[in-house]
Amino acid sequence: MNRIRRQRPALLAGPYLLWSVAFTLIPLVLIFWFGMTDADNHFTWSNLAAIGNSDNLKALALALLLAAIATVLCLLLAYPIALILAGLKSGKSALIAMLFILPMWMNFLLRTIAWQNLLEHNGVINTILKALHLPELILINTPGAVILGMVYNFLPFMILPLYTVISKIDREVVMAARDLGANSWQTFARITLPLSKPGIISGITMVFVPALTTFVITDLLGGGKIQLIGNTIEQEFIQGSSWHVGSGLSIVLMVFVIASMALIAKYDPQGTGTVIGGQR
């Protein structure tokens, strides 16, 4: 009787365990298998070394750059929004938060294709410009378009953790800082900002990682002119070049993701923001 009861919580984890073995662990093992072997199933480093190829290196560097820019833009846009949301009364803030989350209810591809239509050479924006006799702009297939796509798609993932953390900051703690002589800017810089660090960190993680690895946004808004590491990996798999090289590059990308998260975790000693905990 006692034994059964004690086993129950473990049993509850069963379905997820099966799921993660089937769809996370096994694929991961396969990626490592493909990544470390050649077509004849012999061990090789060459798939990993493929990152050293100048095209791939450029794609990785560009991906890091665009993802970093998009993350910074998301943070700059999201923080004031989260701050305002957290300051509102609960009924109002829920409504406005929903407005920001609303786009997430639509399909990701659909949203990105909509931007394609807006930015195209004969798209909505240029049609309007033409009607106003203004010079047309090259918008689509630029790094700017890709960054726009990233920011647009991933902004909610920055707002949500920030909003959650900021709204949890006790109003009386902020009042205490004011009481001790801090003006509103000093209170923000010394109290609100540092206390919202876990939210900043999880927001950065949730935007930077998908932005670093995306290929759909580049495909749709970069039109094949912008090649990120995600696109390279996709092409290795889909256009049949080589599962082995694709897996090798995936492993390298994974290392970059883990490294960037570890770097972020250094600034978050409590380990509240990321999966990789700190040392405290």
Partner: peptide, 17 residues
């Protein structure tokens, strides 16, 4: 504003930073 007043408050709740 509170920061301009010549008084300080000890709050009921723990408001330490």
């Amino acid at each position: 504003a509170p920061n301009k007043r010549p008084l300080n408050t000890v709050f009921q709740k723990d408001t330490l930073f």
